[in-house]
Structure formats: C-alpha cells, structure tokens
Amino acid sequence: MPAAPVVIIGQGNEFRGDDGAGPEVIRRLKTRGVDRDNRVAVITGPLDVVGIINEWQNTALTIFIDAVLAQGPPGKIHTFHPLISPIPEAMGTLLSTHDTPPFTKALELGQAIDRLPHELVVYCIEGQNLTHKIGLTAEVDQAVDRIVDMISETIRQFLSGTSQ
C-alpha cells in the first residue's frame, strides 16, 4: 500500500482523558473532510514504534499530534519541527504516557535506517487529566480546535504546491 504524500497521526488513548487529544484531532479533521483528498491519510493511534515508521516513511509531510504533561498550562500547544531542530529533551521524554515514548524511539530508529518523512511537524498539547475517563478538559478541547485549524491551513498550503 503506497504511502499518501501527507500523513496525519493522532497519537493517544481516548479512554485516558486528555491523552485522547490526538485521536480527537483526527476525528475533527475527518469531520471537515480532510481525508477526502486522496493525497492525505489520517491515522488514529496509538501506534507503536514500528507502526509510526511504517506510516511516515516515504511521505512528503507527516503531522504528528500527541498530548503531553510538560508543566505548562492545560491546552498550551507546543509546535516542533524535529528534523530541523531537536525537540527539547524534557519534552521528548514526555511525549507518551508510557515509559518508552514510541515517537522518540521512532525518530531515533527512523534516523538510523533512513526511514523518515521528508518533513515532520509535531504538535503537542498540554493535558491536565490523564486518568481513566472519556472526554477532554475544556482548555484541551479548545486547543484541539486550534490545532485542527492550523493543520487544515498547513495542508491547504502544502497541497496547493502539489499536483493532484
């Protein structure tokens, strides 16, 4: 199955409160019909290391969204371009509720075997509540809307330079 030029991965667990921010971004992007363009694939995580690499390899642009707890206010959005400048170490270790964050491992392994997207954008949303519950806190919910707007615009601009 050939990769779409643009892949958007929403990482997270919808049953763990604000950790569901990534999957919720994907849900709202689908509602907007972003994936109706066959140049765009949207993926709901959680993906493991191998899954992330398999999805982003050969893509022109991969957008990765995940929740973090990095001591900022809930709903704060951190944006990174890890192929241009490294994600700050403190943030890198917080990109998952697991001990070994799949994203940072995927980045490391992808670099080792030259399996990276051409361009990579990472949006991290500061969460507040990662307990067993369904639903986002209000600030995170609003941040999801902002990210959906940002991604929609990014894709629009990106695809306007790409032939269908």
Binding site: M1, V50, N54, Q57, K105, L109, A112, I113, R115
Partner: peptide
C-alpha cells in the same frame, strides 16, 4: 537495543519493518 543495532545493520531492520507491516496489513 534495536536502535543501536539499526545503525550497523540498517537493511535487516528495514526488512523487519516491511515484513511486520505485511502482518499488520
């Protein structure tokens, strides 16, 4: 770990990823 191994044996890891993906598919 596999990341350290991948630096010296990238082809083996690439093959693994491709194989695993077929199972996933």
């Amino acid at each position: 770990d596999s990341i350290a191994m991948a630096k010296d044996h990238p082809d083996a890891v690439k093959k693994a990823l491709k194989l695993k993906k077929i199972g996933n598919d």
